[in-house]
């Protein structure tokens, strides 16, 4: 199933890699952003099916808050991709029905498995 995906990641090469992986899987990357503000503006316009969100973003912005806003205001669910997913964070985000929490480094398989969660929930 092809999905329209937004990638929010502040590291340019990691973003490029993830976009390539997603496109290899047949998904459409509709927006890319490095910080929370840009990401939200883009999401308002493009309305992705799902957002891949790093927790620590550029300009010192917070992926957790972005995901909260995306879900509350636009109904967009997030898949968190980060090197620092704590148990506290999982509990905090439980309310916004996240697609999943994916630890770095990401492989083709872990990313694919995580996205399968979109259709299952």
């Amino acid at each position: 199933m092809t999905m329209r995906i937004m990638v929010v990641e502040d590291d340019a090469l990691i973003a490029l890699d993830i976009v390539s992986l997603l496109e290899d899987m047949g998904h459409l990357v509709v927006a890319e952003a490095a910080d929370a503000c840009t990401a939200y503006e883009l999401a308002e316009g493009d309305r992705p099916d799902v957002a891949l969100v790093d927790i620590r973003l550029a300009k010192n912005t917070d992926g957790g808050k972005l995901a909260q806003k995306l879900y509350d205001l636009l109904g967009v669910r997030s898949l968190f991709v980060s090197g620092s997913i704590t148990e506290d964070f999982r509990v905090q985000m439980a309310g916004i029905n996240p697609v999943g929490f994916l630890g770095k480094p990401v492989t083709r398989r872990t990313l694919g498995d995580a996205l399968r969660g979109v259709t299952q929930h």
Partner: peptide
């Protein structure tokens, strides 16, 4: 983890 991801991303690209 982020550094490993950076290295992995570069190699994969």
């Amino acid at each position: 983890k982020n550094s490993l991801q950076q290295i992995a991303s570069v190699v994969r690209l």
